[in-house]
Simulated scan of single mutants.
Amino acid sequence: MKLSAPLYHLKRKAKLLSRAENIPLHEALDRVARQEGFSGWSLLAAKVTATAPTEKLFARLAPGDLVLVGARPGQGKTLMSLELAVQAMKSGSRGVFFTLEYTEKDMLDRFRAIGVAREDFAGLFEFDSSDEISSDYIVKRLAGAPRGTLVVVDYLQLLDQKRENPELMVQVRTLQSFARDRGLIFVFISQIDRSYDPLKKPCPDLEDVRLPNPLDLSLFTKTCFLNNGEVQFRAAS
């Protein structure tokens, strides 16, 4: 099923509908999704993400990788990151999802959106939404993680939100060393700056990553950017 308009246009339509009829945004999004033939917005977003070659992308990842997955809201970056964790679990490895954004219910909804039952991966998937998430917290929680574990961090820009946490650059360097030493794969979900204009380029890139605090983006070994169903994957040169 082809969408009547790009995803960002549909989201804008929902925002206008929300304001015009004074209804919650999530209700407006679901209404727009039903007009497109989907039961809800999460399934519509999953449809867009379904075109993303996650199996091929996962096959290009290696232990020690730091992957940056970036997109504007509603483009499927969380679903893609979860799908990468699912691919890891299908291969017999573990998947761990650290988030400062989602609840357990939200994560179950995301599993349903990609057509996967969480119980199918009992013992392989771990969800952590602690308010204490930081590089030190992650390293401690993954002290016994086996080689090949795929770790999703949702999201990059929130790691140093608390003043007591180290600077973002320090935290990413810590996780880089940890990933290399232990043979883990880290996938960082990233915000994209509002200045990104999809009319000027089909997908955002490293120049569009929102960086409220300094960070050397060359620390990431691979990048994946999404917009309107298009996926651009690059390995560091």
Rank of each mutant, 00 (worst) to 15 (best):
P212N: 13
T223K: 01
V209N: 04
V48F: 12
K11I: 02
S130D: 03
L79A: 07
V69M: 12
S81A: 13
E83K: 13
N22D: 09
Q87L: 07
S129C: 08
C224T: 01
A145M: 02
K56L: 04
E83P: 06
R141V: 01
V96N: 07
S42D: 12
V116E: 11
D30S: 12
D154Q: 09
K201V: 00
L124T: 03
N213C: 06
M107Q: 14
M89N: 09
V32A: 06
G229Y: 12
R194G: 11
P6G: 10
E132L: 15
I133R: 15
M80I: 05
F127M: 10
A145V: 03
G115H: 14
F178E: 03
T149R: 08
A50D: 11
A33R: 08
V151E: 05
S39M: 10
M1Y: 10
V48N: 12
R110T: 01
D106R: 07
E27G: 06
S81L: 08
V86M: 15
R72T: 02
A5N: 09
K105D: 08
D65P: 02
E21H: 14
F220G: 00
P63T: 08
I133Q: 10
Q87D: 05
R34H: 08
K2L: 08
A14Y: 11
S177F: 13
R31K: 12
P63L: 10
S129E: 11
V86A: 13
Q176T: 02
P202E: 14
L108I: 03
D131V: 07
T54I: 09
L16D: 11
E36D: 09
F111W: 13
S177W: 15
Y196N: 03
K140G: 06
Y137N: 09
S237E: 15
S218F: 14
E101W: 08
I23F: 14
L217Y: 00
F225K: 00
D109C: 05
D120G: 03
L7S: 05
K140C: 03
V152N: 10
V32D: 06
K11M: 15
N165D: 09
R94M: 14
S18G: 11
P204R: 00
V187H: 01
D181K: 13
V69L: 12
T174P: 03
P202H: 05
S93C: 04
I23P: 13
G123W: 14
L206W: 00
L66A: 01
E164D: 11
E21A: 03
Q191A: 00
A14H: 14
A33K: 13
R182Q: 12
I189Y: 10
V67M: 02
E55T: 07
L17M: 10
C224K: 09
E83I: 05
L79M: 10
G76I: 01
T221R: 12
S130L: 07
P24M: 09
